[in-house]
Structures are given as structure tokens and as C-alpha cells.
């Protein structure tokens, strides 16, 4: 059976490494994207089951990316989980209004990270 695909849009290399490591060790397939343009393209090409989206990104920020994904046919229903610093989490409503399904606060806690994502898979029984 094919392992589940998660697209991670994150510009910080160390953070990408950490999330990649944690997700892969739980058996997921990780697709990396370092910015919004690449991320949206990869979402269309790879059709991941979940998108992890950093909010603090250069050029196009997370709010904008979430908005574009929600308006792009074919990828508009993929759950988006925003990864954000606390001040940004204060903007929880803004994040959700932009189209995110949920959000995870930074710093990422390795012990709980994967379990925060798991409930958002579209259909858990098929894993």
C-alpha cells in the first residue's frame, strides 16, 4: 500500500529537516516545498493528503498561499495545517479565515507533533 503523502511548505531548512524526519519516521511520505509558488505547483502535481504550511514565509506569506489553494480546483479541499509562532497564533481567526483547517504553534514539540496532524487525514480507515 502506498504511504500517505504530506506536502510541507517551509523555508527554514532546519525546521524542514525536523518535520521531514518526524513525519517520515511515522511512515509518511514527505514532499518538500521552500516557498508558496513551488508549494502550490507541487500540491497540484502530487495531490497530497495534507498540506503543512508555515505562515512566516518570504514573498508570498502563508495567508496568501492558503487563499490560493482554496481557490484552485483539484486542491481546494486538501486540509491545510498552518505552523505558526505565538503572535501569529493570536491571529487564529485570520489563519482560519484564510482557509487553513487548523494550526500548530511553534516551537514544534517533537513528542506531540505527529499526533496533532493525524486527525486531519481525510479518511483514516484506509491507511
Amino acid at each position: 500500500m502506498m504511504s500517505r503523502k504530506i506536502l510541507v511548505i517551509e523555508d527554514n531548512e532546519q525546521n524542514m529537516y525536523l518535520m521531514h524526519f518526524l513525519l517520515e519516521s511515522h511512515g509518511y511520505t514527505v514532499i518538500e516545498a521552500e516557498n508558496g509558488h513551488i508549494g502550490i505547483q507541487k500540491a497540484i502535481d502530487e495531490n497530497p493528503e495534507i498540506i503543512l504550511l508555515d505562515i512566516q514565509l518570504p514573498e508570498m506569506d502563508g495567508y496568501e498561499i492558503a487563499g490560493i489553494i482554496r481557490k484552485t480546483p483539484g486542491i481546494d479541499t486538501i486540509p491545510i495545517i498552518a505552523v505558526t509562532s505565538y503572535a501569529m497564533a493570536g491571529d487564529k481567526e485570520r489563519i482560519l479565515a484564510a482557509g487553513a483547517t487548523d494550526y500548530i504553534e511553534k516551537p514544534i514539540n517533537p513528542a506531540t507533533f505527529v499526533s496533532q496532524i493525524a486527525p486531519h487525514f481525510p479518511d483514516r480507515d484506509q491507511s
Binding site: 527554514n12 532546519q14 525546521n15 529537516y17 525536523l18 518526524l22 511553534k106 516551537p107 514544534i108 517533537p110
Partner: peptide
């Protein structure tokens, strides 16, 4: 916070 995540892991 990004490196803090790494340190924690």
C-alpha cells in the same frame, strides 16, 4: 523558535 524545535527534538 525554529532552532528551538530542533534542540527539543
Amino acid at each position: 523558535r525554529n532552532p528551538l524545535s530542533i534542540i527539543m527534538s
